[in-house]
Design a protein around this nucleic acid. Structure first.
Length: 986
RNA sequence: GGGCCCGUAGCUUAGGCUGGUUGGAGCGCUCGGCUGAUAACCGAGAGGUCCGGAGUUCAAAUCUCCGCGGGCCCA
């Protein structure tokens, strides 16, 4: 009985993949692939947790596929590789989704709605698309432990995060400050820098030049410029550069005197006359009249000129309006110079009662009115429009305000050197990120604004005594219980945690929790330890830290890649990962980023249903370096399906087809490679060379290099050369040694190739493996196998070189035939190759192959052109600089007859195919035609019968032969001769 | 506005670090061939201002600088 199951040439890859998924589920293949390596060296991976409150994007699919490739590869290489799934669940994006659902939009509304119920909805919402995520993850073949994921809202996870923050606090790195932070007035919260970055848009803002009247001077004004007129209400100072030249000019219709930087004189519309020149320094401490008298100023002096290095002369007037409530540098410079502070705007971005004419107005909406007031007062010099980029809330779209808020910070700036030192321990792919984008970012690192005045997040674990002001950071649930005056809730989220009052260990007073939650980037940055509930459980963390490998897209450079390093540096002062692979983004066919708002996001389920997961994976792996952006093209995936997967399938199909016919059993034969023929030794050598190249490329994450090399091997070496060249060896009827060698070689190559490809295209390779290998004494899945390793003793570099030479000669020979107008089927007498003695030696052993490929009776290997160049029958074809090929294009009667016979055979083979005959079916042939053809058939009848499996070859036409036979007949024209051919199953 | 990356044929790309014959492939296109050889294969052909400009050099796709376009990050 045949050992292998027959296959069909056309397969439904989608159905096949679904069957494989069922098989993996049924047999627990994934779990077993991990367990099999228990006790082996670990390869530690950390899954960057996605949030499942939206559908997975093509980019997520790419990331998952790359993770899968590396982890499957490492597992096959003998490592113990855990892949715990994770979910990122906290944060403003989640709140925004719930707000939308509830039709509310402010913090006040949430409080009215009830924090308890609001947070419950948030908790539900983060798994809204869990099913789609799980399905996509499974369908694309990403083996991930999804049964017991880490979840950032989990009690244990929060406890670990609390522990870590207490570590930060104990080191004195956690501090409270007033800092100007980007603030969304609608969401009423500060935003992290990575959040701000997502929302820049080019907008047109008013550009206003305002005159500030100097005190004690007659009609002398400082001319300042701003694009945010509303901030003028918080003006505290005007800044000039100490060493730039400023001028006093007479300008304007009413001849007023203005002061501005000389380099900015072109800001003036009117003609002017320069009256004086002086350094900025000489303006220092000059007082000016307050522009708007409404807002109270607290904590220091105000309304005077200061000098500052940051003043530039690129735009404006060289006189910079300073409002510490609305600008980071403004805040800092005022603090440094002991100036006062004025905050006429509330947390919703509305002017307060301190500003009666504008009270209750949203600041951006007040610009118009402010400009009018300036105009009326005669202090508006001029006004126009200004196009610049301005940040908007990345979720709700409101313009952000820079706003001085109370906030908690981690002093990352003080850890700068540690961050840089730890970065040195990390291998970055691509390497330029290390000292480029990421390194530069670390060089200029700022403190981490950690707190969020929101609801759904890990509560900030800081309590402050309402009696004495002492603060306390709680590092565990046990500590919380110990210090609590009342009961501790099971759920650590707001609002329950807000109720917990601690006893102050200094004064015994009531300690109340700071109402903030923490930045969810801190949550995910804690994943390496929090997913294992460290330090409350120690062992698992110790085994899994630091990570050997993480990968996400390039946008995570300052996101998760940073938050991981930041948290780990603050707590352990070590790098949390050793290798990080940064992926490019997926763009649409036009090269534009895919985004929901543009409506150009490709739905991956259509790819899974139309092409296949393997085709998609192979496309991702071969299209280019992983770090490059990908212009996504469904056509590109279809091409991979047709070209690569089909070719692989057909190579396998070829083997199975004949192995079934011959009942070939690979176990029954053991033939040493060295005793096989050159073709066999060549493909085995190529395979081993390839294996080494693939491993080397994957090890440095050059996945596209590895995949492309495999693709070339499958298409060129295996299918188009080895199988094509060797196919006749499989067709021999009787058993013989050479046929065994061919079967064994092709079998070994296919099996090894399957393993080599298993991490790339896990479905098709599994299917092939199941048929070719799986028996009781073998592993039950290709994914339980060891990855192939090159056997150097099987690599024969000389042979590979020789084959390359031969293939060059074959190409040249075909060119010569093509030029001479002689088809390949026409046998020719000889070909002469003229080249060096060295090449001579290399090709000699393969000359039979050359003879066959070029369809000549003789191959002459020569060292001189003499005799061929001159002979009229020889067609000359240059191969390379020291090799020339001469093809004898002369034909005699016998060659012509042979050519005709070849044509006859080809026609008969075509007819067999037409009537769907089995490969092994015997036939009867009848023929009738012109004399030349009949004569040729007559002279080569044995050859024709052998080639076409004919048992009978008779002259005549079927109607005269037998009445009850069903012949298939066709008329042909061969070399201008007419011939009738008829065949029937014998 | 600043930083990093990318820009090679209609499309996908190799080469670039380390400058050196006519810049290679694949898809698509045209022509021819082959086909029990597979939605495949073989041969030939058309198709390139190597994004533009300047510089270094005997020599630049490659190195340098300045632009332009795209992406990401930061303001």
């Amino acid at each position: 009985m045949a050992q292998f199951k027959s296959e069909t040439q056309r397969v439904d890859f989608i159905k096949q993949e679904e069957e494989i998924l069922e098989r993996w589920d049924r047999e627990g293949t994934f779990e077993r692939s991990v367990e099999r390596r228990t006790g082996c060296e670990q390869f530690v991976f950390v899954e960057g947790p996605p949030t499942a409150n939206g559908l997975p994007h093509p980019g997520h699919v790419l990331t998952r596929v790359v993770k899968d490739l590396i982890l499957r590869y490492k597992t096959m290489r003998g490592f113990y590789v855990r892949r715990k799934a994770g979910w990122d669940t906290h944060g403003l994006p989640v709140e925004i989704e719930v707000e939308k659902e509830l039709g509310i939009s402010t913090k006040g509304e949430i409080e009215t709605y009830g924090i308890e119920e609001f947070n419950r909805k948030c908790k539900d919402s983060v798994f809204k698309y869990e099913k789609e995520w799980v399905n996509a993850t499974k369908r694309v073949g990403f083996w991930l432990e999804m049964g017991d994921p880490y979840i950032t809202f989990d009690k244990n996870y929060i406890e670990s995060v609390w522990w870590s923050l207490k570590e930060v606090w104990k080191k004195g790195l956690l501090y409270k400050s007033h800092k100007v932070v980007p603030f969304c007035p609608r969401c009423e919260t500060t935003l992290s820098s990575h959040e701000v970055a997502q929302g820049y848009q080019d907008v047109e803002d008013p550009s206003v030049y305002v005159k500030f009247k100097l005190k004690d001077e007659e009609e002398l004004y400082l001319l300042a410029w701003t694009t945010t007129p509303w901030t003028l209400l918080g003006n505290i100072a005007l800044a000039v550069h100490p060493r730039n030249t400023y001028v006093k000019v007479k300008a304007g219709a009413n001849g007023e005197n203005l002061i501005l930087a000389e380099a900015r004189l072109d800001a003036l519309d009117d003609e002017y006359e320069i009256l004086e020149r002086f350094d900025g320094k000489s303006l220092e401490n000059k007082e000016y009249e307050q522009l708007f008298e409404y807002a109270k100023v607290e904590g220091g002096e105000a309304h005077k000129v200061i000098t500052a290095e940051f003043v530039t002369l690129d735009e404006g007037t060289g006189v910079v309006h300073i409002a510490p409530a609305f600008g980071e540098v403004d805040y800092e410079v005022c603090r440094d110079k002991n100036l006062g502070f004025s905050q006429p705007v509330n947390s919703k971005g509305h002017f307060t009662h301190e500003v009666p004419p504008l009270e209750g107005m949203f600041v951006k909406d007040a610009d118009r009115q402010i400009i009018e007031i300036l105009e009326q007062r005669g202090v508006l010099y001029k006004e126009s429009k200004y196009l610049h980029s301005y940040p908007f809330c990345w979720r709700c779209g409101s313009p952000l305000l820079y706003y001085a808020r109370e906030s908690w910070f981690i002093a990352m700036k003080s850890l700068r050197d540690n961050l840089l030192a730890n970065n040195e321990k990390i291998n970055w792919y691509p390497s330029h990120l290390k000292h480029g984008r990421f390194g530069n970012f670390l060089e200029a690192i700022e403190d981490w604004a950690l707190s969020r005045e929101r609801f759904w997040g890990t509560p900030l674990n800081i309590w402050i005594c309402s009696e004495c002001g002492k603060d306390c950071c709680v590092g565990s649930i046990e500590e919380l219980k110990r210090k609590a005056k009342n009961s501790v809730p099971d759920d650590l989220h707001r609002p329950y945690i807000d109720e917990v009052v601690l006893r102050c260990d200094v004064c015994g007073g009531d300690m109340i929790r700071v109402k903030d939650v923490i930045d969810c980037w801190y949550d995910s940055g804690s994943a390496p330890f929090a997913q294992w509930h460290y330090p409350f459980e120690v062992e698992r963390f110790k085994r899994n830290f630091p990570a050997d490998f993480i990968t996400e897209a390039i946008d995570q450079t300052r996101g998760w890649f940073y938050s991981l390093l930041a948290v780990s540096t603050a707590i352990f002062d070590t790098a949390p990962y050793l290798n990080v692979l940064s992926l490019g983004h997926i763009l649409d066919e036009k090269g534009v980023k895919m985004s929901k708002s543009k409506g150009n996001v490709v739905d991956m389920t259509t790819i899974f249903n139309n092409e296949s997961a393997d085709a998609l994976r192979w496309y991702f792996f071969t299209v280019g370096p992983l770090s490059d952006d990908i212009r996504f093209s469904e056509q590109g995936i279809i091409e991979k399906q047709n070209k690569f997967l089909n070719t692989l399938w057909n190579s396998y199909f070829f083997f199975v087809t004949y192995a079934v016919i011959d009942e070939f059993n690979p176990k029954a034969k053991g033939i040493a490679v060295e005793s096989r023929n050159a073709m066999d030794r060549w493909i085995i050598s190529r395979l081993n060379t390839l294996t080494g190249e693939v491993i080397a490329a994957i090890e440095c994450f050059e996945v596209h290099v590895a995949a492309r090399k495999i693709e070339e091997f499958v298409i060129n070496d295996l299918s188009n050369w080895y199988i094509r060249r060797s196919r006749r060896r499989f067709w021999v009827q009787e058993d013989n040694f050479d046929k065994d060698c061919a079967y064994l070689t092709l079998y070994e190559v296919l099996v090894s190739l399957c393993k080599l490809l298993a991490p790339f295209v896990p479905f098709l390779t599994e299917h092939i493996y199941q048929n070719l290998v799986r028996t009781e004494d073998e592993h039950e899945s290709v994914h339980l196998c060891d990855y192939p390793y090159p056997d150097k003793s099987l690599i024969d570099a000389d042979l590979e070189d020789s084959m390359e030479l031969v293939s060059g000669l074959v190409e040249a020979g075909r060119r010569a035939r093509s030029d001479a107008g002689i088809k390949i089927r026409q046998p020719l007498n000889d070909v002469a190759v003229v080249f060096s003695a060295e090449k001579h030696k290399k090709v000699a052993s393969l000359s039979a192959m050359l003879k066959d490929e070029l369809n000549v009776r003789e191959v002459k290997l020569e060292s001189t052109k003499a005799g061929f160049a001159a002979a009229g029958d020889y067609k000359e074809e240059e191969v390379d600089e020291d090799t020339t090929l001469f093809l004898n294009v002369g034909l005699d009667k016998e060659l012509i007859e042979e050519g005709i016979v070849r044509d006859v055979v080809r026609r008969i083979q075509g007819m067999r195919k037409d009537i769907d005959l089995e490969y092994t079916a015997k036939i009867n042939i009848m023929y009738e035609g012109d004399e030349a053809v009949k004569e040729a058939i007559d002279n080569f009848s044995d050859y024709i019968c052998a080639e076409t499996l004919a048992v009978d070859l008779k002259e005549g036409l079927p109607s005269h032969y037998s009445d009850n036979s069903i012949y298939y007949a066709k008329k042909w024209n061969i070399n201008k001769n007419e011939v009738h051919l008829a065949i029937e199953a014998a």
